[in-house]
Amino acid sequence: MNTDILLRKLMSAARQPGKDWSVPDAFEKRVLASLRQGRIRPAFPAVDWAAGLWRVSVSCVALAAVLGACCLSFPGAALGGEDLGVALEAVLWSGAEEALEVL
C-alpha cells in the first residue's frame, strides 16, 4: 500500500468534523459548581490547620518518646546540667582553633 496516499486520506479524514461534536447540557453549571466547591475549602483555614496538626501529633509524640528513651538509656552522654549552647559552640570552634594553632 502506498503510505503517502494512506497518510493523505487519513489527514483528510481528521479534518472532517465528527458526528457528535456537541457540548454536554448545562456544562457551564457544572464548571461553576466545581468553582464554588473549590472556594469552600480555603474558607475555613483553621480546620485545615487543625487537621494538619492532628496528623503530625502522632509522629511528634513518637519522636519525643524515642529521644526520652535514648536520654534515659545513655546517661553518660547527657550534658549533666551544662548549657547546651556553650557545649555546641565549643564543639564547632574546636576544629577552627586547632587549625589556627597549626598556623
Partner: peptide, 22 residues
Amino acid sequence: LAVAPEKAGHEEDAARSLVKRL
C-alpha cells in the same frame, strides 16, 4: 484503499477511527 484508493472515502467513520489510532 489498497485495491482502489478512490473508493476509500476520507469522510467515513472507519477513516476517522484509523487516524485517531494513529
